[in-house]
Design a protein around this nucleic acid. Structure first.
Lengths: 187, 187
DNA sequence: GTCTATACCTTGATAGAC
DNA sequence: GTCTATCAAGGTATAGAC
């Protein structure tokens, strides 16, 4: 693996742990084992590196979501594969983690995050509507509202977990499951 | 109003807009109109000032919640007063806004935030259980799950709003309302 | 209590040798 | 491609006059 990759790996790790602002080029150099020279040879600036690192994380997370959703099983089973998974909830969602970083004002850094949320929302919404049309399920609330609740509850769960230093995301997923049992009836 | 108050007001405003890390003592001095001297005369350090400012914001928000919840009306109506209000959703929740700031590792800054979430959760849970016992409503999922969904969906709504730069919190509140209509039946 | 001047450290980035 | 040395700017805090 090249130094360039080492730098990207270290950046993604540190961004997950501390976010953009709290991660300095020197931190990245220490964790990756690369020096100043390598750092600025491969990346014009910290911002440029961040841009690439964030895009990679988003691509990874979208791929993982697609893997969960495109496997076998009913829609509910596939959704549960995405929802019920071991999460390091105190570190936060790798994507949502960075939303409140002030550097996110830069559209280059913000756009990948927006793309992530749009993707999950669009994709899950389409799955729900397709299942509805196939007569596989019945909904007591609009599909778009269900999708938005899933996304926002998950993200909020991470926020509450970090604030209280307790793994509340698992409870949020349970609560979400309980709600879905009521508003989403499998035919 | 004393310089001390001016500094606190400016700090609360800047923390809402930018969070702790991205706000420097100099920023606070400029916005408040106080100089270095006043700043370090009234507060030992930025951290100490933050501690006081955050505690004040939390106290304000808890008081506002209590005002909404202790007024007239059914439980649902009182909850809706808290949920359905004009929100500057792109700036974020004044409390949740700061959760991902790296300085929040310091328990002195984190504890007030945790207290806020615990308060809303305990208080809303108690209201639901009391109404249940009085036979005023019937729930299709446990009260604790409803409370956790309300809190987490709201917080997540702010995160998604900021990431996409769209006021999605209002939609989240609608979705939350739709869910509550299904799982929480007023007798 | 408030001001100005100053000190010290970290950050983000460049220069130039190898 | 990688290293070390260096730099300007800004963040946080102290000193001392008024």
């Amino acid at each position: 693996m090249s130094k360039r990759d080492d730098i990207l790996v270290a950046t993604k790790q540190l961004f997950w742990e501390r976010g953009y602002e709290a991660t300095s080029p020197r931190d990245i150099q220490e964790v990756s084992g690369a020096g100043q020279g390598s750092f600025y040879h491969h990346f014009r600036s910290k911002r440029d590196l961040a841009c690439e690192a964030i895009s990679e994380v988003v691509a990874d997370r979208i791929a993982e979501f697609e893997r969960d959703m495109s496997g076998p099983g009913t829609l509910r089973e596939r959704l549960d594969r995405f929802l019920v998974q071991p999460r390091e909830s105190l570190k936060g969602c790798r994507i949502g983690r960075m939303v409140w970083d002030s550097a996110i004002d830069d559209p280059r850094l913000r756009e990948p995050l927006a793309r992530y949320f749009r993707h999950i929302e669009d994709r899950l919404g389409a799955e729900l509507n397709a299942a509805l049309e196939r007569g596989e399920l019945e909904l007591k609330v609009p599909a778009e509202q269900i999708v938005l609740m899933v996304l926002s509850a998950l993200q909020g769960g991470f926020t509450i977990s970090r604030a209280t230093q307790q793994r509340r995301v698992d409870e949020v997923v349970s609560a979400l499951g309980g709600m879905l049992d009521v508003v989403m009836i499998i035919c």
